[in-house]
């Protein structure tokens, strides 16, 4: 069987330029083209060794796809490729304005509970969060392109915060809809 070069970057694997703004359709069709070759279903009648290799390579392709398809993961992967060592646990932000904003956003979500139109209230916050996510995304691109990796890291961190609140909001919406 063909062996993938596991040293190449995820961008190279899918034939994409190293940039934050990737074409998700191209990513997904490249992923399917690769899985068509390496997926374990193509090795059902192969030797045990080839079966194992296929699981490994298909896993790697999936991991690469997951990383590039999620904006936060993609940003952090780009930083890693540029030589930054990222450590989730020790990383915090010292930007107090940003922190205050986060706390305010969480409170706003909680207040929707007592709002006359709780779902409409959620939609409103959702719009706000999406535009924040876009804003920090653009910030990341600008910082990264100028080689300001530490600033880019802070932007990616903010993207992550927003992403978490977004997920919380969606959970909260479901909770409301389900009564």
């Amino acid at each position: 069987m063909q062996i993938l070069d596991l040293k190449q970057s995820y961008f190279e694997l899918f034939g994409l330029d190293l940039t934050f703004e990737i074409d998700l359709k191209r990513l997904s069709s490249a992923q399917q083209r690769l899985q068509a070759v390496y997926h374990p279903d193509r090795f059902v009648n192969a030797s045990e060794q080839d079966k194992r290799l296929s699981v490994q390579q298909a896993s790697w392709i999936n991991e690469a796809f997951e990383t590039l398809s999620k904006p936060v993961k993609r940003a952090r992967y780009m930083l890693e490729l540029s030589g930054l060592e990222l450590n989730d646990e020790s990383e915090t932000t010292s930007d107090t304005t940003f922190l205050m904003e986060q706390i305010a956003l969480r409170e706003e979500i909680e207040e929707c509970r007592t709002n006359a139109d709780p779902l409409g209230c959620c939609d409103h916050i959702m719009d706000k969060l999406r535009s924040k996510a876009d804003q920090f995304g653009s910030e990341f691109i600008a910082n990264f392109d100028q080689g300001q990796l530490d600033d880019a890291r802070i932007s990616s961190r903010k993207m992550q915060f927003i992403q978490r609140i977004l997920e919380q909001l969606i959970d909260f919406q479901l909770e409301l809809e389900e009564g």
């Binding site: 374990p40 699981v55 298909a58 896993s59 790697w60 999936n62 991991e63 796809f65 997951e66």
Partner: peptide, 8 residues
């Protein structure tokens, strides 16, 4: 909902 196979 992570695509499989997968290794972490």
């Amino acid at each position: 909902n992570t695509p499989i196979p997968v290794t972490r």
